[in-house]
Amino acid sequence: MSRLFMPVKVYEGEDVVINEASTWTKLGRKALIVTGKHSAKANGSLDDVIKALDLNEIPYIIFDKVEENPSVETIMDAVAFAKDEKVEFVVAIGGGSPLDASKSIALMLKHLDWDASNLFVANEDDSHLPLCLIPTTCGTGSEVTGVSVLTRHDLRTKQSISYKIFADIALLDAKYLISLSPKNLKNTAMDAFCHLVESYINSGASVYSRNICMEGFNSFRQILAVLKDERKADMKDYFTLLRTSTYAGMAIAQAGTTIPHGLSYAFTYRLGVEHGKACGYFLAGYLKMACKKWTCNTPEISNQIYDDFKASDEFKTLGEYEVNRILNAAGIKDIPEFEELFIKLCGDVNESESLDTVLNDTVDAVFNNKAKLAMVPFELTREDLVEIAYNMKIEGE
């Protein structure tokens, strides 16, 4: 059965925060602005939000203490900050960290009698304050997903909360990407690419989500030269980068992420590897495993694709054919070229005495996560996970 659920109203365009102010400021009579310490001020997005609120005579308070990979403790600090302020909606500005954090904050502000443990114990009440999300990076697609990933210091990893919290409105203006550092731009674009691949090679994928992925791969191909420093970005490129991320967010909202993301969380927490880079580190290994094991035995793999595979002498398995087809759609020749692209965009992961320990621990964690394994459209043994996890380490030797 194919399905599509995308409740977020998305507005894209230059100066969209101001131009659509009459739409999103109707979410409530007082706003809580959630953001990080620096980037929203530097790229002008915070000024735009404040201007729009002032023009529409909506009072606001600002919580600007969201760190990278926001913690549960930060969520509870924000709730304590806002609980007596009678805020009626939340506006979040930034990359995935403020956007993800805002979903948990909006949930907890609706349930002031809850403690932090409630974030990870689902019940039927997922009510939350209305949300307006404004992305200023091009990676997570959090503006159109229901996911809120938080750092759990008690478990020494990252974990999604047990609720799907979608925004009411997402506002996309690519001018906020201009001030991103090249490193941040490339790492977040790698995250978006991982979202596209993981939601395509996924047991929860549908004909709709895979078509969204193909649009995302096409967008990624259009900005690949920018990411590889072969030409400078113009405003059209920045909108393409942002749109690629949003397509990817729409895709994972339908299907979710799989093994590369599952392996990445402890990698980020324990080794300090940036999220997009951590996911990309495991992607080639996942693609290689898909080539060997993915039978593509689902209704969403069309007869035309199967017929094209049978007519080709180049590929041994349908999985290998499909993997190369989606890579080609993104402008990438094959898996070795992706491995080279990963190193060019994100750099290698520095070897350390703890790398093997972290890789083994994260393999164990993912292998024991039956929900994550169920999202993979082929069976994986622990040995398979080891092969995926160690792929880039072995390739680099």
Rank of each mutant, 00 (worst) to 15 (best):
residue 5 F to Q: 11
residue 7 P to E: 05
residue 10 V to D: 08
residue 13 G to A: 09
residue 26 K to Q: 14
residue 28 G to E: 07
residue 30 K to D: 08
residue 30 K to A: 08
residue 30 K to R: 15
residue 30 K to M: 09
residue 31 A to W: 01
residue 31 A to Y: 02
residue 33 I to K: 01
residue 35 T to D: 09
residue 36 G to N: 03
residue 45 S to T: 13
residue 67 E to N: 14
residue 74 T to F: 01
residue 76 M to G: 10
residue 76 M to Q: 13
residue 79 V to P: 06
residue 81 F to A: 11
residue 94 G to Q: 02
residue 106 A to Q: 01
residue 107 L to W: 05
residue 109 L to E: 04
residue 110 K to L: 04
residue 111 H to M: 07
residue 113 D to P: 13
residue 116 A to W: 05
residue 119 L to Y: 01
residue 122 A to L: 06
residue 123 N to Q: 06
residue 125 D to M: 05
residue 127 S to G: 11
residue 140 T to C: 04
residue 143 E to W: 01
residue 144 V to A: 02
residue 146 G to T: 07
residue 151 T to P: 03
residue 152 R to W: 05
residue 157 T to H: 03
residue 158 K to G: 11
residue 158 K to N: 11
residue 168 D to I: 07
residue 169 I to D: 06
residue 172 L to S: 07
residue 173 D to P: 12
residue 175 K to F: 08
residue 180 L to Q: 05
residue 181 S to G: 12
residue 188 T to Y: 01
residue 189 A to C: 04
residue 190 M to E: 06
residue 190 M to L: 13
residue 191 D to H: 00
residue 193 F to A: 02
residue 199 S to G: 03
residue 199 S to R: 02
residue 199 S to Q: 00
residue 200 Y to T: 10
residue 203 S to A: 15
residue 205 A to T: 03
residue 209 S to M: 02
residue 211 N to A: 15
residue 211 N to H: 15
residue 212 I to D: 10
residue 216 G to I: 05
residue 218 N to K: 15
residue 221 R to P: 07
residue 244 T to Q: 13
residue 249 G to A: 07
residue 253 A to S: 15
residue 254 Q to I: 10
residue 255 A to R: 00
residue 258 T to S: 10
residue 258 T to V: 12
residue 261 H to T: 13
residue 261 H to Y: 04
residue 266 A to Y: 02
residue 270 R to E: 13
residue 275 H to L: 06
residue 276 G to F: 00
residue 276 G to Y: 00
residue 276 G to R: 00
residue 282 F to I: 02
residue 287 L to A: 05
residue 287 L to D: 01
residue 296 C to M: 11
residue 299 P to F: 00
residue 301 I to T: 14
residue 304 Q to S: 13
residue 306 Y to L: 11
residue 307 D to F: 10
residue 308 D to W: 03
residue 312 S to T: 12
residue 313 D to K: 14
residue 328 N to W: 03
residue 330 A to G: 13
residue 330 A to K: 01
residue 332 I to L: 07
residue 332 I to T: 04
residue 340 E to D: 15
residue 341 L to H: 02
residue 342 F to W: 07
residue 342 F to N: 05
residue 343 I to V: 15
residue 344 K to N: 14
residue 347 G to K: 03
residue 350 N to V: 14
residue 352 S to E: 12
residue 354 S to M: 12
residue 363 V to A: 07
residue 364 D to K: 13
residue 366 V to M: 06
residue 367 F to S: 12
residue 370 K to I: 06
residue 372 K to F: 04
residue 373 L to Q: 10
residue 375 M to K: 15
residue 387 E to D: 15
residue 390 Y to G: 12
residue 395 E to Y: 14
residue 396 G to I: 10
